[in-house]
Design a protein around this nucleic acid. Structure first.
Length: 424
DNA sequence: TCTGGGGTCCTAGGACCC
DNA sequence: TCTGGGGTCCTAGGACCC
């Protein structure tokens, strides 16, 4: 059996951990740049606040209902995620960390999955403050279904779906559009052809499904029937592309500002590559104007550059990215977003050093190593390329950022013991 | 004023190889 | 009359996930 453990309203729950007064209060977390709603507590969902809704359109609802609004604080969420995952990893033979707030667990050898999961859930809550739901079933797709049921209907937050009678009963009431692997397009397509529930799809004609929904659709049908098609992926696999992109906090017109931003994104990509022990062979840069601005002149441009030798050197990648940017840039537009994607990634041990540049490459590797060491121990961007800029006016808007309670000394929670009162 | 930021996989079609 | 059979690689586009 496979368990899917999913943190409830994860980002909102993270904000609550160090501010217990937010318990039972509506909370939303906004995307970068404080743009859209990307997480909601149950109370916020009950107010009808939709996932992905633009924050500025929701402002009156926020004000009227005393909604607590947060900018996203990924340092906090990432750290709490690591804590949850390490607790889950104890006591099961294998774990696949599927996303920041979800993990599949292999329950082989666990005799009482239900009691085990209830205990696990209590432990995670007690040790981290994060509430989780657990769905248990013979396949990943069914575990996802079970998790939905656990979260929605089960007080104890756990649901086991083992026997085909239970499975069929659940699938008959499970809307097709909530299935893992059915997005908006497939949902509409399937409904137009009379498939409304997971049960309808599970009993569909397999070759028809394969023809219309590719081999992935076929796998989904088999998994719904209890035949596993997706194994647990426990080794984190090497990324094939790495992207760093942001919207700007303001309109950006000038090349020198875009250069700061693109250089920063390129350097971040290089850092992510080094963290993965990978090298990239291609660098793709894009810039775009704001598509939501009515009547504004629009311009989107992008270009890929293939390197002669793969690299993860910040200076090299930045230099190439800036050369591409120079070709893309046109004066007279208000740019809203830019990004860098490094691709054609290979492991760093596969590097072929060129005969002529061997010494240079080794020297630069040492520089990069020192750079990472300083920035890891003393704070992000403590040492950076000058071109990345100093005032960085284009940076994100993050007006409602909570403290990094667990990852920054200055943000640590202070408790006044005498008065039994939390000071911060 | 104001609309996120990451990823993956599959397929078809074209170009090319022997 | 009749024109093979097996591949790979690349790209664009479309779907999905969190």
């Amino acid at each position: 059996m496979i368990a899917l453990v999913d943190c409830n309203n994860f980002y909102a729950s993270c904000e609550r951990v160090f501010q217990p007064k937010l318990e039972h209060k509506p909370i939303v977390v906004l995307s970068n740049n404080d743009g859209c709603v990307i997480a909601r507590s149950n109370e916020a969902k009950a107010l009808g606040i939709k996932m992905g809704a633009p924050a500025f359109k929701m402002k009156s609802i926020f004000d009227r209902n005393g909604v607590y609004v947060f900018s996203s604080n990924f340092a906090l969420y990432g750290d709490l995620s690591n804590r949850v995952m390490s607790i889950l990893a104890e006591g099961v033979p294998a774990i696949e960390i599927y996303s920041i707030d979800e993990a599949f667990l292999n329950l082989d050898g666990i005799i009482k999955p239900l009691q085990f999961s209830i205990d696990l859930r209590t432990k995670v809550r007690k040790w981290t403050g994060i509430p989780v739901s657990v769905g248990i079933a013979p396949t990943k797709t069914l575990a996802k279904v079970a998790n939905h049921i656990a979260k929605k209907y089960k007080k104890e937050g756990v649901f086991v779906m083992k026997h085909s009678k239970t499975i069929n009963e659940v699938l008959k009431h499970f809307p097709i559009d909530e299935l893992w692997g059915v997005g908006r397009q497939y949902a509409q397509f399937l409904k137009e052809r009379g498939f409304y529930t997971a049960y309808d799809l599970a009993n569909g004609n397999e070759s028809w499904v394969k023809r219309n929904m590719t081999v992935n659709g076929l796998r989904m049908v088999k998994e719904l029937k209890g035949l596993p098609c997706y194994a647990l992926e426990c080794e984190s696999s090497r990324k094939k592309n790495i992207c760093t992109s942001r919207s700007f906090g303001m309109d950006v017109k000038e090349l020198h500002e875009l250069r700061e931003a693109v250089a920063s994104y390129a350097a971040t990509c290089a850092m992510k590559l080094r963290k993965e022990k990978s090298l990239a062979s291609s660098i793709y840069v894009f810039i775009k104007t704001n598509p939501f601005k009515d009547g504004a002149k629009q311009y989107n441009a992008s270009q890929k550059f293939i390197l002669t030798e793969p690299t993860n050197d910040s200076m090299e990648i930045t230099k190439v990215a800036l050369n591409v940017l120079r070709k893309l840039y046109k004066k007279g537009f208000n740019y809203k977003k830019a990004g860098v994607i490094v691709g054609d990634i290979v492991p760093d041990y596969s590097r072929q050093l060129s005969f002529f540049h061997q010494q240079d490459v080794l020297k630069r590797q040492r520089v990069m190593h020192s750079l990472d060491y300083i920035n890891t121990s003393m704070g992000r961007n403590k040492v950076r390329l000058a071109i990345q800029g100093f005032d960085r006016k284009w940076r994100l808007k993050q007006e409602k950022l909570s403290p990094c309670y667990t990852t920054r000394f200055n943000d640590m929670l202070e408790i006044n013991v005498d008065q039994h009162r939390v000071v911060r």
